[in-house]
C-alpha cells in the first residue's frame, strides 16, 4: 500500500509498534548487564541491547517527525504512558532466567528478521533504510539466540528442563506478533511462515518440543499491556519526568 494512502495516525501507530518493540526489548536486555552467565555473554547481550536501542531511536525520531508535533525521541520514549505504548506483549515480559531471555530473543528476532527484510522493499524510503540497517543486526541476534537455544536444550537435564519451560512460557505471546493488519507497510500475517521456518528447526535440533498453539494473549499494539509494562516504564522514565524540560 502506498504510504500516502494511509492516514498519518495509522502510519504513526505502525512506526511506534516497531520502535516500542525495539525500545522495550533494549530496556529488558539492559537489565542483564553485570549479571550474565559469563563475561563474554555480558558483552554479547549489551551489544544486542545497543542494536535494539539504536533501531528504536531511529524509528522514534522518524515517528516524531512524521507526527509533526515537535516530539523528539526522548519525548516519545519518556513522556508517553503505558497505554500509549504500541509494543507487543512479548518484549515487556520479565527476563526470567537465561533460558527465558534466550526464548524471547529467539522469537523476537525470528519475527523481526523477515519483517525488516520485507520493510527494506517498502515504498517508505526512510523506513526502508532503517530496516536495512536493523535487518543485519537482527540476523545476528537470531543466530546468537539459536546457538544458545540449541546448547541449553541439548545440554544438561537441568538446562533442557529450563529451556523447554521457557519456550512453553513464551510461545503463546508469539501469536500477537502475526495479527493481520492489511494497512501496515508489511502485513504481519504474512511473516508467520518465515518465523516458523526459522524457529522450528532450532527447537528440533535443541531436542525441544514445539508447543501447541492455543492461548494467544494480545493487546499490546492497541496499548493494552501486561502489568509488567508500567513498572518497566516507571523505572525508565522516573528521572526524566522528575525534571520537566531539562536537557541531559
Amino acid at each position: 500500500m502506498n504510504p500516502t494512502d494511509v492516514p498519518t495516525q495509522t502510519r504513526l501507530d505502525h512506526l511506534l509498534g516497531l520502535a516500542d518493540d525495539a525500545l522495550v526489548a533494549a530496556q529488558r536486555l539492559g537489565e542483564w548487564v553485570a549479571a550474565a552467565p559469563e563475561l563474554e555473554e555480558d558483552v554479547a547481550l549489551a551489544n544486542i541491547a545497543l542494536d535494539q536501542l539504536g533501531a528504536a531511536r531511529l524509528l522514534l525520531t522518524y515517528a516524531g517527525e512524521l507526527e509533526g508535533a515537535g516530539r523528539d525521541e526522548d519525548a516519545l520514549a519518556y513522556l508517553r504512558d503505558d497505554r500509549e505504548f504500541r509494543n507487543a506483549l512479548l518484549v515487556e515480559l520479565p527476563n526470567g532466567d537465561f533460558a527465558v531471555t534466550m526464548a524471547k530473543l529467539l522469537f523476537v528476532s525470528a519475527y523481526q528478521l523477515p519483517l525488516y527484510t520485507a520493510l527494506t522493499g517498502c515504498t517508505d524510503e526512510r523506513l526502508a533504510a532503517i530496516a536495512g540497517k536493523a535487518r543485519k543486526e537482527v540476523a545476528y541476534h537470531l543466530d546468537h539466540a539459536s546457538l544458545w537455544t540449541v546448547r541449553l536444550g541439548d545440554g544438561t537435564e537441568e538446562s533442557h528442563r529450563r529451556m523447554q519451560a521457557a519456550v512453553d512460557e513464551i510461545w503463546p505471546y508469539t501469536h500477537e506478533l502475526f495479527t493481520p493488519d492489511p494497512a501496515a507497510p508489511v502485513d504481519p500475517a504474512g511473516l508467520r511462515d518465515a518465523f516458523l521456518a526459522a524457529v522450528e528447526p532450532v527447537l528440533a535440533t535443541a531436542t525441544l518440543d514445539r508447543p501447541a498453539d492455543g492461548w494467544a494473549p494480545s493487546g499490546g499494539r492497541s496499548g493494552l499491556h501486561t502489568e509488567h509494562l508500567s513498572y518497566l516504564l516507571a523505572e525508565m522514565q522516573v528521572l526524566h519526568r522528575a525534571h520537566p524540560g531539562a536537557r541531559w
Partner: peptide, 13 residues
C-alpha cells in the same frame, strides 16, 4: 564452550 560461540564472542569483543 565451542568454536561457534567463540566466533560469536570474538566478533562481539
Amino acid at each position: 564452550p565451542d568454536a561457534e560461540l567463540a566466533l560469536h564472542n570474538a566478533r562481539d569483543v
